[in-house]
Design a protein around this nucleic acid. Structure first.
Length: 569
RNA sequence: CGGAACGUGGCGCAGUCUGGUAGCGCACUUGUCUGGGGGACAAGUGGUCGGAGGUUCAAAUCCUCUCGUUCCGACCA
């Protein structure tokens, strides 16, 4: 690829619209251009990086026994009605009607389409297992697209689906995909962690996310400092505490005029937030539900959602709380509360705590569960913190930010039952296929890789996913000797299958160096002064700035060696 | 969904408060010099000031509506 003939519109200045580094650099380096919010065109180098990632994904999926297909982006609403997701999925699903007034949508994911395919084509247990994948553009009408390729509305995703005869076999499929994902992200040169995750709207029984560690990540992870436990903080289990053995004291109602917020009540009563229990009211599928957590804790709504078995929970506003309970917020408590009540484990182990009295300007002291109120469920409902012990080994936890680049789910039979995707087993019985689904954000990997690998001069690509492996700088386009040698080297590298960008523009050396750094191409070859003087070619590593001087005939061999080393690492 | 900011040549911005000739840097074109970390000089090209409506002798500037973009937040009682 010749720089002079390519569309690589680099920018000297930071675009006003980009905040995070990957977004800024992708625009500055001329990898992408925005069409409209969350929707981008990939320019030659941007696409080249995407293709590199795709190829790694493809190789590893194929190696794991998955088969590549390509499904439609436009999907009929009927399929989505079958699984109930046309209603449930929410406004992220872009819906429209075609000229025949048929309801349709743009695929944000393909469980319905693939399940429809398999139910038509698979009759017998002999046809299973199947694992099919595609690399395709997805559309999700995000509320707030941001950070360039990180959270776009249109993005490139690899999605795979497995179909098995039973749970045991499905778990093997899951494990195969898990292993393939480990290889994929390692090969991409990413610093990542697989973490236990919530299975979200797609549903299913268990799942892992693959998180690239980066400060700009939108998810928070907890990682054990001692064992290999790691989880998304919204899922991370909090260890149950042992019950406080103190005897129960007499219940006492106290006047707390105007004291509503936890710190205010605590200060007024001279207690710590750990001695108080707050009562939060959520709406779950239209029903109000009260949740008790300790005063200094936060309810983790994903855990609540899972306990209640609903798609979504939402905290009620002051007015809705009053309508549901007859009590103004700030004075809520469990005693005599008329709505459903669920209690965090930690609270269940507490004795003689303070709560609201369900009466304006009053709280209660020495409240005890079992004596003063009953809960309809006790469960782990609070957000984990970094002072909590590791749920696996009890050691210290560390919290980190992460970018989700992959997600594997064991789906079970939810979709296959809803859509009657059955096969005849060896005993002659019809059984639903056991499914799994596995996603990778291909375009997001490019962004995450840049987020994780850049410096003040630009991107620093890991070799395996770099759009180009080598940038060859001809610093003397008007010098016949330098130009001839550059062209020769360029051809030689191309012949050996090296991806090389020849900077043959009539620019000053400074501009070429700056652009080379910005583009983040791992290996830079320079033919300039020291070539004229001593016939030497400079090889410089973008990542650490190390340089070596080589004779022209040594260059290709040396470059190939470095590339092969990076590939086998 | 709530809040805020911004929209002026390709990019980054000033001008708007206080209405009166549309400006700066970069990029681009031509020429000369220069040639290892975003060169210098000279001469040029390019803008319905996001859109619509209104006020005014006069609107980038004031008013109304609208579209677009970005950022923050989404309630812990």
């Amino acid at each position: 690829m010749r720089f002079s003939k390519s569309l690589i519109p680099t920018l000297k200045e930071n675009p006003a619209e980009a905040e995070v580094s990957s977004h800024r650099l992708l625009l500055r380096a001329g990898f992408i251009r925005k069409l409209t919010a969350g929707i981008y065109t990939y320019l030659p180098l941007g696409l080249a990086a995407v293709r590199k990632v795709e190829n790694i994904v493809r190789e590893e999926m194929n190696r794991a026994g998955a088969q590549e297909i390509l499904m439609p982006m436009v999907q009929p609403a009927d399929l989505w009605h079958e699984t109930g997701r046309y209603e449930k999925y929410g406004p992220e699903l872009l819906r429209f009607v075609d000229r025949h007034e048929r309801e349709s949508c743009l695929g944000p994911t393909h469980e319905e389409v693939i399940t429809d395919l398999l139910r038509r084509e698979v009759r017998s247990y002999r046809d299973l297992p199947q694992n099919l994948y595609q690399i395709q553009t997805k559309f999700r009408d995000e509320i707030r697209p941001r950070f360039g390729l990180m959270r776009g509305r249109e993005f490139i995703m690899k999605d795979a689906y497995s179909f098995d005869v039973d749970d045991r076999s499905a778990e093997e499929s899951y494990q195969r995909m898990f292993d393939a994902y480990m290889r994929i992200f390692s090969r991409c040169g990413l610093d990542f962690r697989p973490v236990e995750a919530d299975s979200g709207t797609i549903g299913g029984s268990f799942s892992h996310e693959f998180m690239v560690l980066a400060d700009t990540g939108e998810d928070t992870l907890v990682i054990c400092s001692s064992c290999d436990y790691a989880a998304n903080s919204e899922k991370a289990a909090v260890m149950a505490v042992t019950e406080d053995p103190s005897p129960m004291l007499d219940l006492e109602k106290i006047e707390t005029p105007g004291k509503r917020k936890v710190p205010v009540v605590c200060e007024f009563l001279g207690i710590e937030a750990q001695e108080l229990v707050k009562t939060m009211v959520f709406s779950a599928a239209g029903e109000p539900v009260a949740v008790l957590v300790r005063g200094d804790r936060e309810v983790q709504d994903v855990k609540l959602k899972n306990l209640l078995g609903v798609a979504d929970v939402e905290m009620l506003g002051d007015k809705d709380v009053f309508d549901a309970t007859g009590v103004p917020t700030g004075y809520l408590g469990p005693i005599g509360l008329k709505i459903k009540l669920v209690v965090d484990n930690e609270v269940a182990a507490m004795k003689n705590f303070v709560t609201g009295a369900n009466e304006k300007n009053y709280h209660c002291r020495n409240v005890n569960m079992g004596r003063d109120f009953e809960a309809s469920a006790v469960a782990d409902l609070r957000q984990i913190t970094d002072t909590d012990p590791c749920p696996s080994c009890g050691e210290k936890l560390v919290m980190r930010e992460g970018i989700e680049v992959g997600h594997v789910f064991k789906l079970g039979t939810g979709y296959s039952e809803a859509m009657h995707a059955v096969f005849q087993d060896s005993d002659g019985q019809d059984k639903p296929m056991v499914m799994g689904c596995y996603g990778i954000g291909v375009s997001r990997i490019v962004a995450a890789a840049i987020e994780q690998n850049h410096d003040e001069n630009g991107m620093v690509f890991p070799l395996p996913i770099a759009p180009m492996q080598v940038i060859l700088l001809n610093l003397g386009v008007k010098d016949v000797q330098i130009t001839e040698a550059s062209e020769l080297l360029y051809k030689e590298l191309l012949e050996k299958g090296v991806d090389v960008l020849l900077d043959d523009r009539d620019e000053r050396p400074g501009s070429k160096f700056k652009d080379a750094d910005l583009l983040g191409i791992p290996l830079r070859l320079t033919l300039g002064k020291s070539f004229s003087k001593n016939g030497l070619v400079e090889l410089r590593h973008r990542s650490n700035g190390a340089t070596e001087e080589l004779l022209p005939h040594q260059v290709t061999e040396r470059v190939l060696k470095i590339i092969n080393l990076a590939a086998t690492k």
